[in-house]
Amino acid sequence: MRRGILLRLALVALLLALVLRPAWFAPIFAPFAPEGGPVIYDRASLLSLSLSHLGLVALASAAATLVAVTLAILVTRPAGAAFRPLSRTITNMGQTFPPVAVLALAVPALGFGAGPTLVALFLYGLLPIFENAVTALSNLPPATMEAARGIGLNRRQRLLQVELPLALPVILTGIRLSVVIALGTATIGSTVAARTLGEVIIAGLLTNNTAYVLHGGLIVGLFAVLIYDALVRLEAGLSRRMGLAKAA
């Protein structure tokens, strides 16, 4: 447990150093840079790229969560039941669309820049959240639902006070999947001129500068791993609390 915390702190420190004090790592990356070429990416500040990258992901994921959960609530009500099978097929088949292809296909429609990236992240992010939210909302413990009706909660109260809180851990799992995919897809977003950390890697690939590639790759990889880990812990904490609440 303690070793886990120390490891996490060390990784956070490494990430911060890679982003804020890239010059420290020049001696390490130097062997990978071409003869006489630059070692550290200097065309943009890594901090601003990181913030822009995370901002895109946060915006797209927040919008996707809002829309996906709303849609999931709609198809799990009696009135929306006719759209259930269709929505299942769409999420099933939609997730086979490669994220890069979604990104590339958004360009002809929306042009270059942050726009297509945001749309691709949003569209692709919808699916896992929607799928998990529908699963969670349709597999609530029947006894609890019966009790909620029994004590006289109306539909709205049942949804807000019982169904959504109980479904939350599973919905969070969907959000985590979607955030991880978004982090990766945003990296590729720099090929359509979105400002993300992918820019560093792509610049390295284009100029045969492995130092850039490694530096950018490490930052993106660390962000993904740490965010994933944080969300896993959040979910675990929530389910534990939920388990206790149920037992009490």
Binding site: G184, T187, G198, V213, G217, V220, A224
Partner: peptide, 20 residues
């Protein structure tokens, strides 16, 4: 599962010096 979370472009990038 941590390997799985690493964004693809970063993973491809990190493979380059490794295989080089």
């Amino acid at each position: 599962s941590f390997l799985q979370t690493i964004p693809s472009l970063a993973m491809f990038g990190i493979m380059i010096p490794l295989l080089g």
